[in-house]
Amino acid sequence: MPDVRHWRHDDTARFLRVPGADDDKYSRGVVGLRTGSSAYPGAAVLGVEAAWRAGAGFVRYVGEGRAADAVIARRPETVVSSHAAGARVGAWVIGSGTDAASRSRDEERELRDLLDGPAPVVVDAGALDLAPGSRAPLVLTPHRREFERLQDQLGSAADDDRVSAVARVAAELGATVLLKGAQTLIADADGAVIRVEAGTGWLATAGTGDVLGGVLGALLAGNADAATAEVAAAAAWLHGHAGRIASGVSAQGGGPGHPIVALDVAEALPRAIADVIA
């Protein structure tokens, strides 16, 4: 079994900083999201909201119809376009709120272009099936059932041990894999594994994975020279801490907290960041 590194508050602090006098919106990180759909426009809104709240200086959304309209209604500072071609971004987020079964040829062609490009790509939900063979630096974010389907696609042997399983899949893909759960596991292509336990059970609600995608995009865009798996761990820790803040669970674990929705987590991100950089 691979050794497991436990990720903590102080580890996360290395990937967050206060903007200085020489910063502008581009130096703070540009995030592009190709997420959501007419069936699931909320996924686009949640990812865009989280990217802004996690400190991105510029957010571009690629999409049309209900999803694009919903993004502009919620976050009018977002730049919206119908195609990703020519967009200069520091990191992409794709797949959230989409379904591979309804993907058009044009959509698949554009997604494959992003997956073979130079910028890191956060790959979620309806784009996970396109990850094998891609050349961009990837962070895959499956939940348990999506991870099992990915194992089947790769022909990877089933393993009851989550640590060994995530390390094996990351090595086979040559990518970073973030396996979501009560204990989030992040494995890099060399098989090193990080465990993040900063969250709360109240995060087990629809849309929080879309928020995580936006946080990942923001931190990847803002830490271009850092190890991808470590940036992913910092994003997972920050997302979990925001969930604790939103649900009223103290840092010491006292009190049961209360139910939350995904947008609560996105809105708590600035407070979570303030806690880390204080």
Results as ranks from 00 to 15, higher is better:
13 A>Q: 10
13 A>L: 10
19 P>D: 06
23 D>V: 03
26 Y>F: 15
29 G>L: 08
31 V>Q: 09
33 L>K: 02
37 S>Q: 10
41 P>C: 00
49 E>Q: 10
50 A>C: 00
57 G>M: 02
66 R>F: 00
68 A>K: 12
69 D>L: 14
69 D>A: 15
71 V>L: 13
72 I>S: 13
74 R>D: 04
77 E>H: 08
78 T>C: 07
91 A>G: 08
92 W>Y: 09
96 S>W: 04
101 A>L: 13
105 R>K: 03
114 L>S: 01
114 L>P: 02
123 V>S: 11
124 D>C: 10
130 L>F: 09
131 A>D: 10
139 V>S: 10
139 V>F: 03
139 V>P: 07
149 R>Y: 01
151 Q>F: 02
152 D>W: 00
154 L>D: 06
154 L>V: 06
163 V>K: 03
165 A>I: 08
165 A>R: 12
168 R>W: 00
178 L>T: 08
179 L>Q: 08
181 G>L: 05
181 G>Y: 00
182 A>E: 13
190 D>E: 14
191 G>T: 03
192 A>E: 10
195 R>M: 11
197 E>F: 02
199 G>V: 13
210 D>F: 07
210 D>L: 11
220 L>R: 05
222 G>A: 14
233 A>T: 05
234 A>F: 11
234 A>L: 09
237 W>Q: 02
241 H>N: 03
241 H>P: 01
247 S>E: 06
250 S>L: 10
251 A>E: 15
254 G>V: 00
258 H>W: 15
258 H>K: 14
259 P>D: 10
262 A>P: 14
262 A>F: 13
266 A>M: 13
